[in-house]
Nucleic acid binder design. Structure first.
Length: 422
RNA sequence: GGAGAGAUGGCCGAGUAGGUCGAAGGCGCUCGCCUGCUAAGCGAGUAUACUGGGAAACCGGUAUCGAGGGUUCGAAUCCCUCUCUCUCCGCCA
């Protein structure tokens, strides 16, 4: 959420920065709503001040018959206040919903652009594997080795669900453990195992709601949602809290499954593991001091890259342009891993800084000094990494001509010493 | 699922015949005094949001005692609904 005062005082600038995201004006209608609200607020509050002071006078009058006139007068004042407050409540709701639907301002350094095509490659790492044969797509490799069963997933649930079997299931679990160990032992993150369902307030705190409900799987009886990413529970851990300055930055890592409706992506990546309704992810989340957030985003991105480096998978880092960054993000780097069968890089991690956008929605603050006013922290998160897609990258990059797959050396101890899936 | 208890400020904890309660007291914390050091002691201060004024320090208004609604001139205190926590019983991985 953007700061109301900022919008009020820098309306043109806010409009201009938001417009780089593309689409129509995001702030249309704000001024009228805001001004009307302030007017009603002022009127209601001055009547309340009157009522408070007269009520106090009444309390000091011993003879109640003398107070009768004032009581009658205040009765009508109260009625008026009630009327004003009802209008005010409606306006507040309207304005609140409005503000919750305005995306974050892109960071000044975010490249301006309309779409994916305007993203900027920042760096590349690793060497492409060379094949003396035509590399197969991971779904063929997985089916041939009987470690991925797409038909069974479809039978059990439906499209975009997959059953892993044997060494496939083990490999997925190995990757989860490998990533968690790396981030906790080497990078200093605190491991968390959160609930996989959250309530509406949590989804609103990180920005999935109110705008993107159709992307979520929801429960109806209790009004809960399956998390689309661990970002949601992790960031909301500190919702409505004032953190200690000395505790910042706080760094958390969590493995969770993620559930996404993938509405609007019919026909995209229908084969294989790339786009599933349920997938595993290890997520990194940081709460930082505002002045540290840029540096912490760089660090977090490197932490995610480290996973690919240790697995010896080639990748590149891309800076997303203003038209491609997500609703809540101010800066985003995507890490894309090389997939030989598709002859291109595919997203395997998305590392973003949100400035105070999520912190303001979720009420996550700190005090610079003991006595100073609470300020919003900055939040940062990134995948470290998407586990299913990592498994895809391993199958494709490490495949052999005979259909077997060599397991990256760093992972073998998590596979009970297995060197090859055959 | 059944029975009961509770939800107050950073924490603990008063406050129910409705008014002077943003809320006693204690702890913690901050500043000052005192004191070889430490501890103890003394004094002052110590919520948040919105809003008005001011360059600022700061001053004023409104709201907030789990959430929402009601009664009333006036509610932490009375009434209703909901949520959460705890205890006991049942069930269960």
């Amino acid at each position: 959420m953007l700061d109301t005062k900022y919008i009020r005082e820098n309306f043109e600038e806010a409009e201009r920065r938001l417009s780089t995201r593309g689409g129509s004006s995001f702030l249309e209608g704000f001024k009228a709503l805001d001004q009307k609200r302030l007017m009603l607020l002022k009127e209601s509050e001055s009547l309340k001040a009157l009522r408070n002071s007269v009520s106090e006078e009444i309390s000091r009058i011993r003879d109640k018959s003398e107070a009768q006139e004032k009581i009658l007068e205040m009765r009508s004042v109260s009625a008026k206040i009630k009327e004003l407050d009802e209008m005010l409540k409606k306006l507040d709701e309207e304005l609140g919903l409005f503000l919750l639907s305005v995306p974050n301002l892109p960071h000044p350094d975010t490249p301006i652009g309309a779409s994916e095509a305007d993203n900027v490659e920042i760096r590349r790492w690793g060497k492409f594997p060379e094949f003396s044969f035509a590399p197969k797509p991971h779904w063929e490799i997985g089916e041939n080795l009987r470690i991925l069963d797409f038909e069974c997933g479809a039978k059990l649930t439906g499209a975009r669900f997959t059953l892993y079997r044997g060494a496939g299931a083990r490999l997925e679990r190995a990757l989860i453990n490998f990533m968690l160990d790396l981030h906790t032992d080497e990078h200093g993150y605190t491991e968390v195992l959160p609930p996989f369902m959250v309530n509406r307030e949590s989804m609103t705190g990180t920005g999935q709601l109110p705008k993107f409900e159709e992307d979520l799987f929801k429960m109806t009886d209790p009004d809960y949602f399956l998390i689309p990413t661990a970002e949601v529970p992790l960031t909301n851990m500190h919702r409505n809290e004032i953190l200690k300055r000395s505790d910042l930055p706080l760094s958390y890592v969590a493995y969770t499954p993620c559930f996404r409706r993938e509405a609007g992506s019919y026909g995209k990546d229908t084969r294989g593991l790339i786009r599933q309704h349920q997938f595993n992810k290890v997520e990194l989340v940081k709460f930082t001091h505002p002045s540290d957030s840029e540096a912490e985003l760089e660090k977090l991105t490197l932490h995610a890259e480290k996973v690919l480096q240790l697995l010896e998978l080639p990748y590149r880092v891309v800076g997303l342009c203003s038209g491609d960054i997500g609703f809540s993000a101010s800066t985003t780097y995507d890490i894309e891993v090389w997939l030989p069968s598709q002859n291109c890089y595919r997203e395997i991690s998305s590392c973003s800084s949100f400035g105070d956008f999520q912190a303001r929605r979720a009420g996550i603050r700190f005090r610079e000094q003991e006595k100073s006013k609470p300020e919003f922290v900055h939040t940062i998160n990134g995948s470290g990494l998407a586990v299913g897609r990592t498994l895809v990258a391993i199958l494709e990059n490490c495949q052999q001509e005979d259909g077997t797959v060599i397991i990256p050396s760093q992972l073998r101890k998590y596979m009970g010493g297995t060197e090859k899936i055959c």
